[in-house]
């Protein structure tokens, strides 16, 4: 029973943690790419990393926090342009391969020993070096706040201040996505997802729309990167290819091309993982499966879940079968 309570608590904690919010934000961005426009961006983690580096390095360089965020967004925009210009006129597979590669390049360059002075190399940058200005903005005071099953410091890293801002960003972005996707602009994107030649024949500049979508989703990815590192530290390897895969898993779990799908998906993603880990830890004797292995077992289950979701419920939890974004014949 104790074990069960521990698992439940950790699921509840993960449900509201800034890390979950960050995954949700990244998935919201990817939803604009993949869910609404049909762009196969396999480098969303690269956008996160670009945003994270730009933000952290700007703060360490002494810039005010607003400017640092702005620089992160501009950096993501430039990254999107570099990726989009050569590929958005080509078939979708090429964007997939180029984004995958580019995200990997960002990670390799970021962790390169040549840049240790700037990016911290493979050790990365510790949170204390860039967290200060954000913590200073807090008006939550210094105490400790209990709220329902949750109990955190008001401001300290991983405290309520971080949680509240992260989820506020999530809420604002959901509102934004809802507003633009019901508009004619969103309609053009969905048209492109279905058949870009048809949309081109109607006189819409498909290339420009795809670029706008790539930039917008990428910029949201950069925001996710900032939210992700604020309560933690910045390490290039934590935003690698696996991260992109996890973002995809969360998006598809929740439901692509829906407003709340990415958010729900991110929460469910962590919940499944912790649940499996908890159950395996409790019921399987440790000589068969040790602590390390329960964690890996949970990831195996995540992988299989992704397969099963895509096969049997491609519209995810929230999606409508008729509107799902895949080409299902």
């Amino acid at each position: 029973m104790d074990q069960f309570l521990t698992t439940l608590t950790s699921i509840l904690n993960s449900a509201i943690s800034p890390q979950t919010a960050a995954l949700a934000i990244a998935a919201i961005g990817l939803n604009i790419h993949f869910g609404y426009t049909g762009l196969l961006n396999f480098g969303q983690a690269g956008f996160m990393l670009i945003g994270a580096y730009a933000f952290a390095i700007s703060i360490i360089g002494g810039l005010p926090i607003v400017l640092a965020v702005l620089i992160a967004l501009v950096a993501a925009t430039i990254f999107a342009l570099i990726l989009g210009i050569p590929t958005l006129k080509l078939r979708g597979d090429y964007l997939a391969i180029v984004t995958l590669s580019a995200a990997e390049i960002v990670r390799m360059v970021g962790r390169s020993s040549l840049l240790t002075n700037v990016t911290g190399g493979s050790n990365g940058i510790t949170g204390n070096e860039y967290r200060g200005p954000f913590t200073d903005l807090s008006f939550f005071g210094d105490g400790h706040i209990d709220f329902g099953p949750w109990s955190y410091d008001a401001t300290g890293s991983n405290g309520w201040w971080f949680i509240a801002t992260a989820w506020l960003v999530v809420a604002l972005l959901c509102l934004f996505v809802w507003a633009i996707m019901r508009s004619p602009w969103g309609r053009v994107l969905r048209g492109i997802r279905e058949d870009e030649d048809a949309v081109r024949a109607l006189g819409k500049n498909v290339y420009s729309y795809k670029m706008q979508a790539l930039i917008l989703g990428g910029v949201i990815g950069a925001i996710a990167g900032i939210v992700y590192i604020l309560p933690a530290s910045l390490q290039a390897d934590s935003m690698g290819r696996s991260m992109t895969y996890f973002i995809f898993t969360a998006l598809l779990l929740g439901g692509a091309a829906t407003v709340f799908g990415p958010v729900l998906g991110a929460i469910v993603f962590f919940a499944i993982r912790l649940f499996v880990q908890g159950v395996a830890g409790q019921f399987v004797p440790s000589n068969i499966m040790n602590g390390q292995q329960t964690e890996q077992f949970a990831w195996i289950v995540i992988g299989i879940t992704l397969m099963l979701v895509v096969i049997f419920r491609p519209q995810g939890i929230l999606g409508n079968k008729k509107e799902l974004s895949f080409d299902v014949k």
């Binding site: 196969l40 898993t249 195996i300 992988g303 397969m307």
Partner: peptide
């Protein structure tokens, strides 16, 4: 299943196998 869907199935398989190796 469309090719995009199948591709994401292979991603799921890839994740599962990677962690199976580590397991």
């Amino acid at each position: 299943l469309g090719t995009t869907q199948l591709m994401i199935v292979t991603i799921g398989l890839s994740i599962a196998l990677q962690y199976a190796f580590q397991y």
